[in-house]
Design a protein around this nucleic acid. Structure first.
Lengths: 251, 251
DNA sequence: GGGCTGCCTTGACTTAAGTCAACCGGGAGT
DNA sequence: ACTCCCGGTTGACTTAAGTCAAGGCAGCCC
């Protein structure tokens, strides 16, 4: 069952009666979304029973694999998840990285099977939402339906972001700034963070060679834009990075 | 109001009482989707009043522009639509082409404004679905909600399709085969069709130079894969094209 | 400690595709 | 009929980034 996790809790716009046992974890996007929209307790309780908090999933373990039966979407409570597909020649193609507070499995909604693999890059905790059930509930909760529409729509934007013919510099700067923004949204430092994924994963995700990632990071550091120490990164000149990434983050 | 358009009509799984005035155009994805799922007449009527058939939109005219208030999604009844954004330097970036039976405006669902421009490449006819209304209706029609989820989810897949580091040949072959498939879905010839968009638009969409598009098409023709005559195309060797496009259309 | 192993970096070379510039050819308007 | 113009094509050159090969460095196990 849901329990309030320690740490930053977004203030619910509707105060929950603290006497009962309805508590929502601070990083659960759905629970938060519902709280924000001020649903009555009966409906929160309905959502509540759909949520399953998973035990820890360790680094390298899969959350789902391509072709598995689609039965749930999941909000990440802790850790980083990488999604990827395997192409015809057996090479891995990284599709995305998911941080705490983000939702995986959405792109499976139109199919009966997951279209990609999801693997933990660090120990991961999830809130699972069994799918047919949450869709049924959404028919009675317009706010939840709207939230699902929004999450799907956002994913369309994310998916097309790297589709342009961008330079290695543009891709790398955009990648760093988007990570920064996502960490900031979680209340973490937007200028100092850890790259939880390997260089080869970053390269694969950005459709660059690993060598290129290495060279670009080195040059960014030489130009005083960033500071890299193994997987720790500090953004020193955000405006300059924004100028470089402008065409990716666009308009 | 909706009238049955001439031409191919998908057989509804629930026979409509032909005596009343509820007729749905054959290319309207939503109406068809609802018919397929066998909703009762009362609900079809509800959907019915949301649909607006637009007058013809001529080549070069805009359907919506980036920043316009989002108020509807639209299924295309006839013509081709190009969506694009304008980057910081004022250059156009083509996001997609939409054929009859396809739905535009979905990527605006999470925002209050359209995130891109939509322009007619040929005379276009639309079925418009006023948005807040159709979402409200979806809360009472699980099949419609599911259809919206599916359309959104498919768009995620489409958006990420060209994101890889593919060669010009792979992109071009995949483009031709995807067009072919889309025409086939409409009951048109999958091997002979017209490119309704300019070479420069194709190039921009595929993130190639127009010169490269020209050269690749020429080489495909020299190799006996296709036959190009101005904007008319015939696919001569689909298996060979599939082999080239395999890594784009993947797995 | 010694030697793996995996991840990362560095340098030298190659190539796919972009850019630049010129030209072609059909359709529209005078 | 003439010209203009735009979309498309062609050829010569350039370049960003990939590939190949080698080497470094941290952590792990024996």
């Amino acid at each position: 069952m849901l329990t309030r996790t320690p740490g930053r809790v977004p203030p619910p716009s509707v105060a929950a009666d603290d006497g009962d046992e309805l508590h929502f974890c601070s990083t659960c996007a759905f629970s938060a979304a519902c709280l924000e929209r001020g649903y009555d307790k009966g409906r929160l309780a309905e959502l509540h029973v759909l949520v399953e908090h998973t035990p820890p999933i360790r680094e390298g373990e899969h959350i789902f694999r391509e072709g598995d039966e689609f039965n749930a979407i999941a909000a990440i409570r802790a850790g980083t998840v990488k999604t990827y597909v395997t192409d015809l020649e057996g090479r891995e193609q990284v599709q995305g990285f998911f941080l705490p507070g983000e939702v995986i499995g959405l792109n499976a909604i139109s199919q009966s099977r997951y279209p990609c693999n999801a693997v933990a890059l660090e120990t991961v905790l999830l809130c699972r939402f069994s799918f047919p059930k949450i869709a049924t509930l959404a028919t009675r909760m317009p706010g939840l339906q709207q939230k699902l529409f929004e999450l799907l729509s956002e994913d369309i934007g994310k998916a097309s972001r790297l589709a342009g013919d961008f330079t290695a510099d543009e891709r790398m700067a955009a990648f760093l700034l988007l990570l920064s923004r996502r960490y900031a949204e979680r209340g973490l430092s937007p200028t100092r963070f850890r790259l939880t994924m390997a260089r080869t994963d970053i390269a694969n995700y950005l459709r660059l060679a690993a060598e290129t990632v290495s060279r670009v990071l080195k040059r960014f550091q030489a130009d005083g834009l960033i500071l890299v120490e193994r997987r720790e990164v500090e953004l020193l000149d955000v405006p300059a990075l924004q100028a470089i990434a402008a065409s990716v983050l666009r308009n």
